[in-house]
Simulated scan of single mutants.
Amino acid sequence: MKHYFYLHSLSARTALLKILRQPIGNLLNLLMLAISLALPVSLYLGVNSLQHWAGKLNTTPQITLFMELSSEEADLAAVQSSLKNHPRIASFRFVHKDTALQELEKRSGLNAISDGLGSNPLPHAFIVTPRQLEPAALDLLQKELSGLPMVELAQFDAAWARKLHAMLTLASQITWLLSAVFALAMVLINHNTIRMQILARQEEIAVSKLIGATDSFIRRPFLYHAAWQGLLSALLCWGLTSWLVQQANPALAEFASLYGVDASLRSLLPSEIASIIGFAICLSMLGARLAADHHLRKNHPD
């Protein structure tokens, strides 16, 4: 057992030293792998941050319930009780018709508008914030709330809600699509790199086979070389992504301030960094395994 672990540690050290002996060529290869990882990771952080900000935006879809002008305190209390106990409502606030008129006068600059009208023509209103932003859920909630007693109209910005939901869904799908494409690219890059190494060492491999070396023994150094490439490229991806986040945050914060929101792209969490490293190592070793197995089958058919 000690000999088994010694062979693996020797292969790992030897593979790392080979990478360090050719820093320029290997660095270019690692940068190519890091970029292929950084693009979907950066898009993932952007989509994840956008989903987090969606709940903070002042334009979050809200359903406004306009009460009938003849509604009384008992009607308002009944509607308030229904909204308070509704499972699909995150929050709501009541807007008294006198408060609404004051806000209208303040915005329009017509301070004596109520004097000319004789009475307040505005109704009481409830502004409801739903828990779910999906268009279908909003449509269903709107129809349900419009049936509450003395509610004359229930309206919300359905077009905005659909646009937001469609944008987030599209961005999420593009992220997964890019992840799959670049994962395949990473396998192919490592496959080609290891294939070139195998071709350069095919005489050494042939001699090893003649003296009884097993396929796993021949394959082992190439797998460790790929594993080191995956680890180092993932670390470079982490650094590149952190740099991109730093560069994008000032411009993003300035843009978000126009909408009254404090926004910034978040950094990768430790668990996400560990996942990227494991993902990169597995893909790299998969490419190496495919290249090594192809060579062994081609030159030593059973």
Rank of each mutant, 00 (worst) to 15 (best):
F92V: 13
P87I: 07
I113H: 03
N85S: 15
L101W: 05
K97Q: 10
D115A: 10
M67Y: 05
V79I: 15
A74D: 15
S71P: 06
S81N: 12
S71I: 03
A100V: 12
G116M: 11
L117I: 09
A77P: 05
E103P: 00
V79N: 01
V95L: 13
L104W: 04
I89N: 01
V79S: 02
E73G: 12
A90M: 12
D75T: 09
L101S: 02
P87K: 12
V95S: 09
L117P: 01
Q102E: 14
D75G: 07
G116W: 11
L104G: 01
V79P: 01
A112K: 11
E105G: 07
Q62Y: 07
L101A: 07
L110C: 02
D75E: 07
T60A: 13
P61W: 02
F92H: 08
H86G: 07
E72A: 13
L104K: 02
D115E: 09
A78Y: 08
T59W: 04
F92P: 02
I89M: 02
R93K: 10
K97Y: 08
F92R: 06
H86V: 14
M67V: 02
I113M: 14
L110E: 07
D115Q: 12
N58S: 11
D98Q: 12
E105D: 06
N85G: 08
A78W: 06
S81P: 04
K84M: 12
A74P: 03
K84A: 15
F94T: 00
T60H: 14
L69C: 05
H86K: 09
T60E: 13
G55F: 09
Q102K: 11
D98R: 09
T60F: 12
L117Q: 06
K84R: 10
D115T: 04
V79L: 08
L83D: 04
L76T: 01
I63W: 00
Q80D: 13
P87E: 10
R107N: 07
N58C: 05
E103D: 09
S82E: 14
G116A: 14
M67E: 02
H96I: 03
N58K: 12
K84F: 13
A112N: 12
E103N: 08
Q62D: 04
S70V: 10
I63C: 01
A100G: 15
E105F: 01
S81T: 13
P87W: 10
G116H: 06
G55L: 10
Q102T: 14
L69K: 06
A78R: 14
S81L: 15
G55H: 14
S91A: 15
G109S: 03
S108G: 01
A90R: 14
F66Q: 00
G55Y: 10
L57K: 02
R107D: 05
T99K: 13
G116K: 08
S108P: 00
S108T: 14
L104D: 03
S114Q: 11
L110W: 07
K84N: 11
A78P: 02
A90F: 09
I89K: 01
L69E: 11
